[in-house]
Amino acid sequence: MSSSTVSPQTTYSTTMRASGNFDKSVEEMKPSKSDINWLIMDYLVSEGYPGAAEKFAQETNLCPAATVETIRERVKIRTAIHAGKVEEAIELINDADAEILDNDSLLHFQLLQLQLIEIIRGILANNPSSQNIPAQDFLPAIQFATEQLSPRAPTDVNYQRALENTMALMIFQPEKMPQEFRELLDVRLREKVATDVNKAILSARGERAEAKIKQLIRARAWAEVQAREAKADLPAHIPIGLDVADEMNGDAVMT
């Protein structure tokens, strides 16, 4: 009827009820501790945290899904790739399971491409002036490309493109290099390849390639978008509870 019928009190209590309701339903949805422990063990094993996996098994009476040795094996490979020691990593992968790279030619190509990039990176680093790098300095890189990568390139246009882009690193002057080429020199590429290698080893062993907790946090973000799009009655901000301040807010709403 009139605006006077809606007192500030009503508005206040309505919003309080809304967030209180949501908090209450969150409380009812609490997962069991053993589910969460499983989720953590799954992560420690698949993402390669052997020490933690071992201790967690002891402290929770849970069995790790893989032996600590196989986790350490993957960690060693990861460390080698992170350090740019691609050749060593390829050897370690073949030691772990020779069929992985035979069966996954894309992954093998990516590793060889990374190896080429690391060779080029080394050459660029040896010439700090980077103005006029003598062409013969690049010979080892070209030799590696012709021996290892060019035989694979014709099998797939993507390989061909990737090889062309990588070779271009030797032609551009570093400061004039376009962004898409510069990205190849970004060390984060090592992390990406290391992740792909880890996934490949896990699936070769019949294990899940991705830890479930990664999907869970994405689901959390996604679900909030869905709920807000559906015009659900939600608190303006839903803290996940990692910060002490969040907790105090949460308590204030509860009381």
């Binding site: 949501f22 339903s25 969150v26 409380e27 009812e28 949805m29 609490k30 997962p31 501790k33 589910d35 969460i36 989720l39 953590i40 907790i213 869970l216 946090i217 689901a219 959390r220 679900a223 909030e224 869905q226 709920a227 799009e229 559906a230 015009k231 659900a232 009655d233 939600l234 839903i238 996940i240 509870g241 990692l242």
Partner: peptide, 21 residues
């Protein structure tokens, strides 16, 4: 409950909110 448990519960509750609507 720890944040991880809370996050899991929130996910479920948010999915509910969206699915019912």
């Amino acid at each position: 409950s720890a944040a991880l448990e809370k996050l899991s519960a929130q996910t479920e509750a948010l999915l509910d909110e969206a699915a019912t609507r």
